[in-house]
Design a protein around this nucleic acid. Structure first.
Length: 1120
RNA sequence: GGGCUUGUAGCUCAGGUGGUUAGAGCGCAACACUGAUAAUGUUGAGGUCCAUGGUUCGAGUCCAUGCAGGCCCA
């Protein structure tokens, strides 16, 4: 009867599919949560992916991590609910839709209605949901996919509104006009954490210009100011200098126009533009085209003296209304690069904006009548705009460059950088002093890959800066893995955090629930659908009709809170009359950061569920989320709840290709997760990714390494199970929990592996608790491969296959069974499929009984079982030491055999082991049998210590402090001691060394006696263990060796003929003087080894060729 | 330019609080083993522990500076 299914050379993907079916059929995941309503909760938050792109291999890494700790905590008895979620709003979706429709942002509301546009977005966003769900299922990531939270649903939006309203009521939402990163290609401002997304900063080459601004207070004199954005020069309104910086007036020629004049720049930067040797040149000898331009420093002044000087507008396209074109003081001015004079364009830089406002400098702007008042932030007729419009084009007033993009925003292949044309114009007009290419890092929009502009925008902000310290303080209570991400990357960022810009001027997202009066100075924030209904009711009562929603409709659930509907809602205020909605959407990062609240539709429903699940015990995402989701969760939680949002967090690293390069579609080095799982299995992938490097390090994904994991770990594990199954089936072994051999009554080998197992359980539990999955995986793998398989099973094979069932055999089965059932539970969080498979195979025969008697392993699934409890009383340090000693002895003994070329099949007379004391001697003798069989020797003897030659070494740790500089002299003195002197020390326990600078007395443990030799014997040692072998091969030993060779050949033949392990055979062997005597002498031995009923020497006509030490013959084997 | 991080064998990685001869697996080579065989054992080759300075009797380990890679920011 097959109690335990046999699994030959496991094809893991097939097994996994069978397990997935089993889980679904038996609802194992649901049961792991629902069957323990009273268990303590362990809360996990799923960071919502966006389903409008395909999942990659890096998603498998972070999702494996998430899964591991949820499964682990489940084994520890916790109730681990985990809700899936979808991030559905935002720019990626909008851009994808625009691309598919072949439109841009400015077409929305023109060629396509907002309604239609948003419907397309809603469709597009879940496009790959199926693929994501398939990945989740296939990789064994347990998550409640049936009831996910979805950020575009009304309930979710309502919860977000509630949070916004709470912020508003606390005075933490405000409207401001600032210079912000803005993406013309995407048509929206970007938050600072969006600029922190990977790959945003790129090395680019721009045209930089040192422009000449003609001073009005000096004769023929120009201020030099440097910029890497020449397109901002038409907006120049001021020049900034450092008050304490020294500036020089330099007479020279312009390199382009060759006109003579005086230029002003920082003294520290003089020689960047004027090589010192040119000071000697003759002014009169200069002619146009000369490479070397003469110069002469006329005077030096402090920056403070320049403040207040005026200059002519550089590019006078537009006249500002107020005062401009002055030299002002700026604290940010340095002499690191440029000229020490900074060009100020108030509309295109945040420093510029600030310093201009402070000095009452007017910006260069144009005024426009508003065509579409709905696009304004409040009802008004006109607005001022910078000289570049929101698409990134110069306004018509900049006549020479009107309509030209300041950067290549449209992927036009013929795009000519406007910067270059501006530079040319400046050169011609004697307004440029130097033009060159300049390479620098510049931020780019994360979706469009286009350079960002700094641009003036009206926006709503969350006043996160007010909570800087509190956020940093609360962050200290969070357990970060790795710690440095929490203290460094995240902690440093919190300490310098700026206000969070919430506004996005797009269409597909959560609308900002704020309404404003016409003057734009009174606001109302709506915090729920019911509140909205009431306000609409109130507005209608006051004559504000024409509403997109009716109060009844809102209360019955028939509505959509998105644009464009919400835009039409008009509220009423008794003092200011009609209020219109602020047209902004909110930053999508707020959506996901709100998920602890909004996933439960808190506070409108599930108040208890929220309370119980906040803050989360654990979250995990990629390190790129540090300033993304990790931050937004933290900010919202601290501002509103004064608590962390999560207690433990793993920030995992990147998945790179095998050469350490980033994976990308362009390089073609991306690894397709489904393909890997189809070929090798999800378990192998999961195990490989976690076992290889700690998750927070970057993983170099190498398929060879993954294959190694399969062969090394998984095949070994399945083989070990297979070995158990093979013999347990033959013997009909079923563990009987009422009659298990007590561990203390089992043989040493069993007690040893049980002892190792207890240490393993303790170790693995500790590592999981510390969120160190890599250490846990490595510990399990080492135990399975080295200790269980290569040592315990290999050495105990005979106990399983020899003879009838007896106490010893039973103990062996029980021991191996215990090890396997424990191992599968330890590894199940990481490798949920194979552990399940083996668990089910092992526990199948006892499950019914176990469930009735509620004893040993009743669970239907390894994931419903309990994490093993370590039994400290079975940990036996002495036994561990004994086995370590024996392993070392066997290893060393084999190296001696190898040195003398004596095969292990030939028995040797004796092995001799050095024992330093009685404990060691006992340890060796206890494993005598093992050493004898492993080394194939007839006896094991102890060499007493007095036979040894010892060497003395200082104990550096002890003596270092005591001796200090004398250390070296003592070391060499000890090395030169004669063996008699060492022996004397051993006897007396002390020794006095005569050193050059006086005698030194050393006692006891200050000297270590180590290296050992045994005079007259061939020994091998590793420093701790020393072994000698008697290498004389006598005739009798040689015959035994030959007999073993024959056993080997006959066994091979049996196998070739596909005989069953238990088949009895008849053997005939051709005569040969190389083995005739051996056969006669060891007939019984050979016959019993190969299960032969007869063994004869004779003539063999049909049979297999065999060869032993160059003697050839024939072998006939048949089944009886 | 700043923050964080990594640099140890051809490859992937270990190496608490400094202690002498720096380890493992894979790969490579040779030999062996064989009722677990897509295994296993033994041996070997393979290292200026990124560099330079410093602290120390002693540095892969601590400090400083630099170089190179990665991530995040200005």
């Amino acid at each position: 009867m097959e109690l335990y299914p046999e699994i030959k050379t496991p094809h893991i993907p097939e097994i996994e599919k069978e397990i997935i079916e089993f889980w679904e059929r038996e609802k194992i995941f649901e049961r792991s949560i629902n069957e323990r309503p009273d268990a303590p909760a362990f809360t996990f938050y799923e960071g919502p992916p966006s389903a409008n792109g395909l999942p990659g291999i890096h998603h498998v890494l972070s999702r494996t991590l998430k899964d591991v700790f949820c499964r682990y905590k489940t084994l520890q008895g916790y109730r681990v609910a985990r809700k899936a979620g979808w991030d559905t709003h935002g720019l990626p979706v909008e851009l994808q839709v625009e691309k598919e429709l072949g439109i841009t942002k400015k077409d929305v509301g023109v060629t396509i209605s907002v309604e239609e546009y948003n419907r397309k977005c809603r469709e597009a966003v879940m496009r790959f949901k199926d693929v994501w769900d398939r990945l989740t299922t296939r990789m064994g990531y347990w998550l409640d996919l049936e009831n996910p939270y979805v950020t575009f649903e009304n309930d979710y939006i309502e919860s977000v509104w509630h949070l916004l309203k709470r912020l508003f009521d606390k005075g933490l939402l405000y409207k401001g006009y600032t210079i912000q990163p803005y993406s013309p290609a995407a048509g929206t401002g970007l938050s600072s954490h969006e600029l922190n997304l990977p790959g945003c900063y790129k090395e680019v080459k721009d045209t930089s210009v040192v422009a000449q601004f003609k001073a009005t207070g000096f004769e023929n004199t120009y201020f030099l100011a440097w910029t890497t954005t020449p397109w901002t020069l038409p907006a120049n309104a001021a020049l900034a200098v450092g008050e304490n910086i020294d500036y020089v007036f330099v007479e020279t020629y312009n390199p382009y126009t060759h006109l003579r004049g005086t230029v002003v720049l920082a003294q520290a930067l003089l020689h960047k533009y004027f090589p010192a040797e040119n000071a000697a040149l003759d002014f009169d000898a200069f002619k146009a085209g000369d490479k070397k331009i003469p110069f002469r420093v006329l005077k030096t002044v402090k920056g403070a003296e320049l403040v207040g000087q005026r200059y002519e507008q550089l590019l006078p396209y537009i006249q500002p209304e107020g005062d401009a074109f002055r030299v002002i003081a700026g604290d940010f001015v340095s002499t690191e690069d440029g000229t020490g004079i900074v060009h100020i364009a108030p509309t295109f830089g945040s420093d510029d904006f600030r310093v201009a406002a402070k000095n009452n400098i007017s910006a260069v702007v144009v005024t426009r009548k508003l065509e579409n008042p709905a696009d304004a932030y409040c009802a008004k007729e006109s607005e001022t705009l910078p000289i570049v419009d929101k698409e990134g084009k110069f306004v018509p007033e900049i006549t020479d460059f009107a309509g030209r993009y300041v950067k290549n925003y449209t992927d036009d292949p013929d795009y000519v950088p406007v910067d270059i044309d501006i530079a040319v114009k400046l050169k011609q007009e004697n307004k440029a002093f130097k033009v060159e290419k300049y390479e620098h890092n510049y931020p780019h929009c994360w979706r469009t890959d286009k350079p960002v502009l700094y641009y003036p925008l009206d926006s709503w902000f969350v006043k996160t800066s007010a909570y800087r310290e509190r956020m940093a303080e609360i962050n200290k209570t969070i357990n970060w893995k790795p710690e440095s991400t929490g203290t460094g990357r995240f902690g440093n960022w919190l300490e310098n955090v700026n206000d969070w810009n919430l506004s996005r001027s797009r269409y597909w997202g959560i609308p900002l629930p704020i309404w404003a009066n016409e003057a734009g100075n009174k606001f109302k924030c709506i915090g729920s659908v019911e509140e909205l209904a009431k306000e609409i009711e109130y507005a209608i009562q006051n004559g504000v009709a024409d509403q997109p929603f009716t109060p009844e409709g809102l209360r019955s659930g028939d509505f959509d809170l998105h644009r464009p509907y919400i835009d039409g809602v008009k509220l009423y205020d008794p003092e200011c009359g009609v209020m219109l909605r602020q047209p902004d959407l909110i930053d999508v990062w707020f959506d996901s950061g709100a998920m602890p609240f909004a996933q439960h539709h808190y506070p409108f429903e599930n108040q208890k569920a929220f309370q119980e699940s906040f803050p989360a015990d654990f979250i995990a995402e990629g390190v790129d989320q540090t300033r993304g989701w990790f931050y937004t969760l933290h900010a919202i939680a601290v501002l509103l709840e004064d608590k962390p949002a999560y207690k433990n967090v793993i920030a995992n690293g990147l998945v790179l290709d095998k050469d350490g390069r980033k994976m990308s579609k362009r390089l073609g080095n991306a690894v397709e997760p489904f393909a890997v799982m189809e070929e090798w299995g999800a378990d192998v992938l999961r195990w490989y990714m976690l076992e290889n490097v700690s998750p927070w390090e970057n993983l170099r994904f190498n398929i060879d390494g993954l294959v190694e994991t399969y062969r090394k770990f998984f095949v070994t594990l399945y083989n070990t199970y297979g070995f158990f199954a093979l013999y347990a089936n033959i013997d009909g072994f079923v563990v009987d929990e009422t009659n298990v051999t007590p561990v203390e009554n089992r043989p040493g080998m069993d007690r040893w592996i049980v002892s190792r197992l207890q240490s393993l359980i303790t170790h693995v539990e500790r590592e999981y608790e510390n969120y160190e999955p890599t250490r846990a995986a490595r510990a399990v793998q080492h135990f399975v491969v080295e200790e269980l398989s290569n040592w315990y099973v290999r050495l105990n094979r005979r106990r399983f296959w020899k003879g009838e069932m007896n106490e010893d055999k039973k103990a062996a089965y029980e021991t191996l069974y215990e090890c396997l059932t424990a191992v599968v539970r330890l590894m199940s969080p990481i490798a949920p499929f194979s552990s399940e498979k083996i668990y089910r195979c092992l526990t199948g025969p006892i499950r019914d009984r176990a469930q009735t008697s509620k004893t040993l392993l009743p669970a239907d699934s390894v994931h419903l079982s309990k994490f093993p409890r370590p039994e400290a009383r079975y940990i036996d340090a002495e036994l561990d030491f004994r086995m370590e000693k024996a392993q070392a002895a066997c290893s060393l003994g084999r190296s001696i055999r190898r040195k003398h070329n004596i095969k292990v099949r030939i028995p040797l007379q004796k092995a001799m082991l050095v024992a330093l004391d009685e404990t060691e001697a006992n340890a060796i003798l206890a494993e005598k049998e093992l050493i004898m069989s492993e080394l194939n020797v007839k006896s094991v003897e102890i060499i007493p210590p007095h036979f040894l030659v010892k060497k003395a070494k200082p104990n550096f740790k002890l003596l270092g402090k005591k001796l200090g500089p004398k250390m070296k002299a003592v070391q060499s003195a000890l090395e030169n001691l004669s063996s008699d002197e060492v022996a004397a020390f051993e006897r007396d326990g002390q020794i006095t060394l005569a050193l050059a600078d006086g005698p030194v007395t050393l006692v006891g443990e200050e000297i270590e006696l180590t290296t050992l030799e045994v005079p007259g014997l061939d020994v091998a040692g590793d420093g701790k263990t020393t072994v000698a072998l008697d290498i004389a091969v006598t005739e009798a030993l040689r015959l035994e060796g030959t007999a073993r060779e024959l056993v080997n050949r006959i066994q091979n033949r049996r196998k070739d003929l596909d005989f069953d392990v238990t088949d009895r055979i008849r053997v005939v062997l051709s005569e040969n003087e190389a083995w005739n005597i051996a056969v006669k002498a060891h007939k019984d031995f050979i016959a019993s080894e190969v299960l032969a009923v007869s063994l004869e020497l004779g003539t063999v006509t049909e049979g297999a060729e065999i060869e032993i030490d160059e003697a050839v013959g024939k072998l006939y084997v048949e089944r009886v």
